[in-house]
Nucleic acid binder design. Structure first.
Lengths: 218, 218
DNA sequence: ACCTGAACACCGTTCAAGT
DNA sequence: ACCTGAACACCGTTCAAGT
């Protein structure tokens, strides 16, 4: 709060929300989101845990702010195709592109959902593209929602398997299950057998997205 | 380990893995997965935290076991339609039906993925249905994968919004954003405006699933 | 073989006080 | 207004010892 003369009152701030977020981002990037604790963050900022609570409400808000800021930076608006169906595909793919690979994003994502004003432009493109394909505005919103479910699911499931690969040992469990399936009971899976791991590791996001969009626009 | 005469050696067990899982399940059902801690669980089992580590490797394994057991119980195999496309839809819907509403499942799901032998029958039905629709086995597996992304995404995103509704206050944030959108910049979203919350709260899982399956089988 | 007690190395957050 | 210190009420897991 400023006084009528423009002076600030009380003790001047030593740390800012922006500084807190920058340091948090560095910890997350270098050591993973699990290592981001309020105590550790305070230490790296050169302050105390409780000082942080003057700038963010709690740890949850910190994570959401982190995601919003990342989205604002990473979601550069691309040139989109003129064809409405291709525009929908390209907008969804751009969101996924920006969020994939950032392992920590998936873990925060479940705490927020379509995040930040910065993502709304993409939402607009998708809804608009679907309307131009002939859907009513209501069905276009539902279509956007389906696309978001698919995209978020891909991000979350893939992040989970990446984490599991890091922790080993359960990957071999799945391989064991698929290696000795009963071909009587589960013939298709038994036939795929050892190719399962390779097949599900392939990046088929775009194929699935196109199928979904094709199905949505009829 | 049994001796050649069938006797067990060493101190007889006081608690079993089955008992641990049953108590864990009760805690999760009654108070939520966040309240399930090794210490709390030990207390309810009438033992000590470290005794648990003789029956499960760590907390992660406990959660996966819990999910596997729940899936085995909840995934009753339904009568499936003869038409292959409808069979794919029905099998996916059955998985989703069993897992939806169980709020804790979503939080564990990101730590596992297609869970347990008990789910493989459904996977088989989906892959088989897609093959009968004319897809190659490889494309059928990719198709299954897309359906799983969509289904897991729906479960996780909806569970996240349910949690947020419980915690309030940020729901109003989204409403505020949507209430004063710039109609110049985001005309479609501005037009939907206050109907956004209602529209995205609707259960349109089946519509999206059908669209995806339609798109997959061409 | 199975269980216990004590300890290690942490958490997020509140409260009361200081400048 | 902003920050600090001490404390509260917890965590998961390891280690050494007991029966």
């Amino acid at each position: 709060m400023a006084t009528p003369t423009g002076q600030r009152r009380g003790r001047p701030p030593r740390i800012s929300r922006a500084e807190i977020l920058a340091v948090a981002r560095r910890i997350v990037d270098e050591e993973g989101v699990d290592r981001l604790t309020m105590r550790r963050l305070a230490k790296d900022v050169g302050s105390t845990p409780m000082a942080l609570y003057h700038h963010v409400r709690d740890k949850d808000e910190l994570l959401v702010l982190l995601l919003d800021e990342y989205a604002a930076r990473a979601l550069r608006r691309p040139e989109l195709p003129a064809d409405p169906r291709e525009r929908v595909v390209a907008a969804a793919a751009a969101i996924r592109e920006a969020l994939a690979g950032q392992e920590w994003v998936a873990q925060v994502l479940t705490a927020d959902d379509l995040m930040a004003r910065s993502a709304l432009w993409f939402t607009e493109q998708i809804v608009d593209g679907l309307v131009e394909c002939g859907l009513t505005p209501e069905r276009a919103v539902h279509g956007y929602r389906a696309i978001w479910y698919y995209t978020a699911g891909e991000l979350l499931v893939r992040a989970a398997s990446a984490r599991r690969r890091a922790g080993d040992d359960r990957a071999t469990y799945r391989e064991r299950v698929f290696a000795d399936l009963d071909p009587e009971e589960l013939p298709r899976l038994a036939a795929v057998g050892d190719r399962w791991a390779r097949l599900t590791a392939e990046d088929t996001y775009l194929d699935g997205l196109r199928a979904l969009v094709d199905g949505l626009v009829g």
